[in-house]
Design a protein around this nucleic acid. Structure first.
Lengths: 223, 223
DNA sequence: TAGATTGTTAATCGATTAACAATC
DNA sequence: TAGATTGTTAATCGATTAACAATC
């Protein structure tokens, strides 16, 4: 029996678990680059990233093959490949709704700016806050009232919901109406969205609950 | 209402994915209880929690069997079961290291207090901050200097690292030296810890990256 | 009873791991 | 070449889903 071989090989889609690890590889590669290291093996890069070398190589294999057998990976090149894949080279505009403590923290979070995310809008309903300057990764932004949300969101790829739980769904609906298709929510309530919209949800208290209720192994490497 | 308690039976360990969803069920159940709803089916509870009913029932089955066929679950009872399993009934002490924007936000995060977590310590190195009162879920706490960390951490079950990346590993080491075995980190660098310590890691920028690199829907062509 | 819903099983899907042929 | 390390395969592990017998 002869097998029918396709002329060009289709790679499987990159798994979600892999995508979630790519930024951490990127981060380690950037550090290596800053320290003048030009080549790195999967074993060493894996230790720095807190994964196994097998997992690292498997992850990279979804994007292509970028290493040299017997040698390792070129730090600069691999960095550029992952950065390109993640779209870091193009800046991504973000609007934050809810400028309480959490919203402030997110607005000025250095990691956002470093990885190409630009906080271009801040929205809140509190009259005390509206009009005030809040520092962001690359400067500052003025807090705008809720009725400006649609205008602002129209230019943003990602919306972050950092409001109290009670307001979260209404804000979510407005973001979607304005064309936002990617939402990061810190509300503890579940958001109802159409299939075309992608929501990621960070429940900080759930993270503590998992820690508190589980005598289980760590996700980080051991010494 | 008296419930028949089955004789103790060896159940498989509760999967991590399940544990992570339990707080969300708890949250929905608390809302139902507040609205006076006493009974709920897995189908309805699942909709409120953003999961399928099969997944919900499977999740609950790891803890035991608490429903009535043909009827559903008693809201109060199921709430108490999950709360007990998560250990929410006992208060859990938390120390936050790093009282910048993020640390402030975490200290006053209402969800922590609601689910039984008590921020009993705040630590920072900034002389401007030390001695200042920061509001927490149940009142306020004074920011203490780094050399008080060991004393404070000794009474805490969980440590939260909200410092700049550069300080994260050193703070982590100090927490572990003080006996903390569960750590939630917001640093982008990977923390090196012994096997006995459990670390959860929230990389906010990675969350945005996953969102931004989204369009891996049904576009892939199979051979 | 007749209808509803649970708890569990078995099948499927997806991610991780170990091992090693390919090859620099 | 001899040693090192990748990229990939196949096995394993864990989580999700669909289906339905049990039973309220």
């Amino acid at each position: 029996m002869s097998l029918h071989i396709a002329p060009e090989r289709t790679r499987p889609a990159v798994p979600g678990a892999t995508v979630q690890r790519l930024p951490s590889y990127l981060h380690v590669l950037a550090e290596l680059r800053d320290r003048g290291i030009t080549t790195i093996s999967s074993a060493d890069l894996a230790v720095g990233s807190g994964v196994t070398s097998a997992k690292l190589r498997k992850d990279l294999s979804y994007l292509g093959s970028f290493g040299r057998r017997g040698v390792g990976y070129d730090v600069d090149y691999l960095h550029s490949v992952i950065a390109a894949w993640l779209g870091v080279q193009q800046e991504i505009s973000v609007v934050i709704v809810g400028v309480g403590n959490l919203g402030h923290a997110l607005a000025s979070y250095p990691g956002f700016f470093q990885r190409g995310f630009r906080v271009v809008g801040l929205v809140d309903t509190d009259p005390q806050l509206i009009g005030r300057l809040v520092s962001t990764g690359d400067g500052s932004a003025v807090v705008e009232p809720l009725d400006r949300l649609a205008d602002i969101a129209r230019h943003c790829q990602i919306g972050i919901i950092a409001t109290p739980d009670a307001a979260a769904q209404a804000v979510c609906d407005r973001l979607i109406a304005a064309g936002v298709r990617e939402i990061l929510s810190f509300a503890s309530r579940v958001l109802v969205v159409p299939d075309s919209v992608q929501v990621r949800h960070i429940d900080l208290a759930a993270e503590l609950s998992v820690l508190a209720s589980r005598p289980r192994r760590t996700t980080a490497v051991s010494a």
